[in-house]
Amino acid sequence: MSDRHAILTPFRVSALQMVSTPERERNLDEAGRLIAQAAGEGAQLVLLPEYFCFMGHREADKLAIRETYGDGPIQRFLADSARRHRVWIIGGTLPLAVTTPTPDHARVLNTTLVFDPEGVERARYDKIHLFNFEKGSESFDEARTIRPGSEVCVFDAPFGRVGLSVCYDLRFPELYRRMGDVALIVVPSAFTYTTGRAHWETLLRARAVENQCYVLAAAQGGTHENGRRTWGHSMLIDPWGEIVGQRSDEGPGVVTGDIDRARIDEVRRSLPAWRHRVLR
């Protein structure tokens, strides 16, 4: 489906905010509750946050719940939820086993899977940019346990094309230019409290303004059982950089708003920056 054939009526989307735990089943139960709430608010597409299914005590803990691509309890949960509620689900991220080009038993792929309302998988994106941060007592290096992806991913939704990205990807605008003309960019995330307070909203609004599209960001938000604190502030931003909806506090919840093709057309018509690009 191309944007020329996208539906013109507003399309309702939701971002889920979570405070995930080291217990997979507890996280899936909470995600199921929030998906049902979003569907009850009329959402037709639901975005989960990065690591929605698991936030372990140690980075290596995710290796114990990794799944083989194509089957596993987390993948079945996402497909079943999409089918049950008749919504598109963009499944935050889950750890997939590295099998190609050679197996890597010490690392996983941090993967986003997309399921349509029939529960059929429609897209897959493996996170490209891996977070590394050192400040005081905070220390993160995703490359120790995650193998980076390499392929940009865009899929067709009823309202237009959707570009997939994850968390730290947000700091690399060249990734979003590679997506081409999209109606929506999604950013499932687990921004730390430190980096989120400093840069989260600024980066999200910048990506919306420079690509003249909507940005939907689902975040982890709160103090986790492993001691990590995440920033939250899940939100939907329109092509002019205005915040359509936002969760202003920590804790689980749902942010719901509409993708309006007319708004995209209006912004691009009045300030045709997308058409004026010279360097590609």
Results as ranks from 00 to 15, higher is better:
residue 89 I to W: 00
residue 90 I to C: 02
residue 90 I to V: 11
residue 91 G to N: 02
residue 92 G to V: 06
residue 93 T to H: 11
residue 93 T to R: 08
residue 94 L to T: 01
residue 95 P to N: 03
residue 96 L to T: 09
residue 97 A to H: 01
residue 98 V to T: 02
residue 99 T to V: 13
residue 100 T to K: 11
residue 100 T to W: 09
residue 100 T to Y: 10
residue 102 T to H: 13
residue 102 T to L: 14
residue 104 D to W: 06
residue 104 D to S: 03
residue 105 H to M: 04
residue 106 A to W: 00
residue 106 A to S: 13
residue 107 R to M: 06
residue 107 R to W: 02
residue 107 R to P: 10
residue 107 R to V: 04
residue 109 L to Y: 12
residue 109 L to M: 06
residue 111 T to L: 09
residue 111 T to P: 07
residue 111 T to Y: 13
residue 111 T to I: 10
residue 112 T to E: 04
residue 112 T to W: 02
residue 112 T to F: 01
residue 113 L to D: 01
residue 115 F to H: 07
residue 115 F to K: 01
residue 115 F to T: 03
residue 115 F to L: 06
residue 117 P to H: 09
residue 118 E to N: 13
residue 118 E to A: 15
residue 119 G to C: 06
residue 121 E to V: 10
residue 122 R to F: 03
residue 122 R to K: 14
residue 122 R to S: 05
residue 122 R to D: 01
residue 123 A to C: 05
residue 124 R to Q: 12
residue 125 Y to I: 02
residue 126 D to S: 07
residue 126 D to R: 05
residue 126 D to E: 14
residue 126 D to G: 04
residue 127 K to I: 07
residue 128 I to E: 07
residue 128 I to N: 04
residue 129 H to Y: 11
residue 129 H to S: 13
residue 130 L to Q: 10
residue 131 F to Y: 15
residue 131 F to I: 03
residue 132 N to R: 15
residue 133 F to G: 07
residue 134 E to T: 15
residue 134 E to G: 10
residue 135 K to N: 15
residue 137 S to I: 10
residue 137 S to R: 14
residue 138 E to R: 14
residue 138 E to N: 11
residue 138 E to K: 14
residue 141 D to T: 09
residue 141 D to S: 13
residue 141 D to C: 11
residue 144 R to W: 07
residue 146 I to W: 09
residue 147 R to W: 00
residue 147 R to P: 05
residue 148 P to Y: 00
residue 148 P to H: 04
residue 152 V to S: 11
residue 153 C to E: 12
residue 153 C to P: 01
residue 153 C to L: 03
residue 154 V to I: 07
residue 154 V to A: 05
residue 154 V to E: 01
residue 154 V to D: 03
residue 154 V to N: 03
